[in-house]
Design a protein around this nucleic acid. Structure first.
Lengths: 342, 342
DNA sequence: CAGCAATATGTAAACGATTACATTTCTTAA
DNA sequence: TTAAGAAATGTAATCGTTTACATATTGCTG
């Protein structure tokens, strides 16, 4: 095990008390300028580094915040994490990152782990199965602030960071309608997820506004991964029940749909147009480039971290608020009606 | 701030000393069975949880290992991290994840942070600029074991986990040659990266073996991101200096190349065939599906974590070893010579 | 010159846990 | 009967840092 220089080493070598050293290093007013200089020099010479563990024990603060995300295979969460990291680093906190792998059980285990590590607050985006509402409430009651982002529980009262999924789903659907597509389907996400519900609601209301019928057959559950989109689309192709446009819950789903289409010799957007959601770099790289909703991923992370730090510093005295960030629809070739433009 | 139950609370409430409580909780032999039972019950009643910070200070072990990756926007590192997490969790260690953002400076900062947090070991994949060799050596000398994976330094003596980049690059190139492509180029990665050097070496030697000339014009530097591949390909197109196949350093580069090709009306593989490296899910989803080398990402993470734990537990008494895992080439449409098959 | 700030430093307790050593009580063998 | 050992528990130091309080020295005012 490595031997570190401690405050005692400095004190001994300089014949002063550890208290003085501590004060000098903390740059307090009540220590002689010369002594301070001497101590700082000696500290440098001995390559002194404060032991954060001791500091934390003394200050009764872990200076750590916990993070729980469903996964980080897709590009979305890594980008959010980058934003979180920045804010958390600047505030001198550390980040403990965990993955729930879309399982409520693992999520609960992760939360316990974070609690055991005395995190001062928790950032979380819940699993697609809806998470552990009671546990969240318990943690918050016990004094650990939580901030939810992106995937948030409806029944828990806490700060949240979201985008206006409803509005953007509405826009996306209207965009397809204005482009002259007649038979529009929605491939919805996991039914337990509030974001999925909101996007679906946006789709339905936009359709209704334009007097288009929405029935059971026009809303198909297709999960979060490309595989599910692929299978769902294959099924439609076999049934010969093809819409002329699909608004997908997210980009991976849309990519899966596209794959199934290509295999069946269908062309996008000529045969079926597509719109995705929460785009990543790939949207622009594939053929055809995919129309999608660009979420401010980095900013979501920053904002969530800020709200949490706010709760921590204020010791829960600041009222909860929900921040809704604006996203943007990027129209690309996959949703342009070629018949209309000709 | 939350109030936790401590060992003192239990001791006080039961009128025993903290030493006895500590011993009972650690399940030592020298404590009366009844006392032990009483203490365990009281601990449960008071919902006692040991304070990990105090334990670490006392034991001088942080039970934490640090991780430094260049980024986690691409799918590669997140998958590796998943493998690391598993092993590290099982060993009862925690993982402190940091990102160097491909900058040597940030990497050095991250390493300092990890050192300050008394991590017991470090897992690292270095930046594309070649990292901080001297710093690594210094850390290892000071007693912090390090294990390098994927992107490893050549000058530092330490355990490493890699795949046989040379061999697979050789195979990939031969695959293109066997497919009858005549003019084959290599878009190489950052010149400071050993993996880039190895892949280039594989390319060159495969070409030589088959008596094909390799000159300056057939090896083009294109970095790690799709943007660079895109720009490099645009340049070739403008110069009308088109090969009939390109072996790319990685998939993002290949995707960038593909984008430039599509914009120029070129078709893959008919006009230019492509092979990528270290594939992710997208390789199968794009059109045409991309031939690429599939790395055992999860296993790389597991192996790296295991080697590190081995170093930690043995206190550096186990000799260093380099593990080379096997990767696999997945041949897809992007590299099939259509002229040949007809 | 008494008395009081202001300045600078030291002493010691504290954070929560662990553990070497000391102490007490009880067995047990010679 | 007694010395030695086992069994169970307590005392106090320790990890590295912070800080309330005590102390000592100096300068300044009336």
């Amino acid at each position: 095990m490595k031997k570190y220089t401690t405050i005692k080493d400095i004190a001994r070598s300089l014949n002063v008390s550890t208290a003085t050293v501590s004060r000098a290093l903390a740059d307090r007013w009540d220590v002689n300028a010369e002594t301070k200089k001497m101590i700082l020099e000696e500290a440098k010479r001995l390559n002194y580094r404060p032991n954060p563990i001791a500091t934390r024990l003394q200050n009764k603060r872990s200076k750590t915040i916990g993070l729980v995300v469903p996964e980080f295979q897709s590009a979305f969460f890594p980008q959010v994490i980058a934003g979180i990291q920045k804010v958390v680093d600047e505030a001198g906190f550390q980040l403990l990152i965990t993955q729930s792998q879309e399982s409520n059980e693992i999520e609960a285990k992760n939360l316990c782990l974070l609690e055991d590590n005395m995190v001062e607050g928790i950032l979380i985006s819940i699993t697609r199965d809806g998470g552990n509402d009671d546990f969240y409430k318990q943690l918050i009651d016990s004094g650990i602030p939580m901030v939810f982002f992106n995937r948030v529980p409806t029944q828990v009262d806490a700060p949240k960071v979201v985008i206006d999924d409803y509005k953007l789903a509405f826009f996306a659907t209207e965009h397809l309608i204005y482009n002259g597509f007649k038979k529009i389907y929605h491939f919805q996400g996991p039914v337990n997820l509030s974001v999925a519900k909101e996007r679906k609601r946006g789709f339905i209301n936009a359709m209704k506004k334009h007097n288009k019928t929405v029935d059971d057959s026009s809303i198909i559950t297709a999960g979060v991964f490309s595989e599910k989109g692929y299978l769902a689309m294959q099924k439609l192709i076999i049934q010969s029940d093809l819409p002329d446009a699909i608004f997908c819950f997210n980009d991976p789903t849309a990519l899966g749909v596209l794959k199934a289409m290509k295999e069946a010799g269908l062309r996008c957007p000529e045969d079926v147009a597509l719109v995705g959601f929460s785009e990543t770099e790939i949207a622009q790289l594939i053929e055809p480039p995919l129309t999608s909703i660009k979420q401010p991923t980095y900013e979501i992370g920053e904002m969530a971290a800020r709200l949490l730090l706010e709760q921590i510093e204020s010791e829960g005295k600041v009222p909860y608020r929900t921040e809704s960030l604006t996203a943007k629809m990027n129209v690309r070739k996959s949703s342009i009606n070629t018949r209309l433009t000709k």
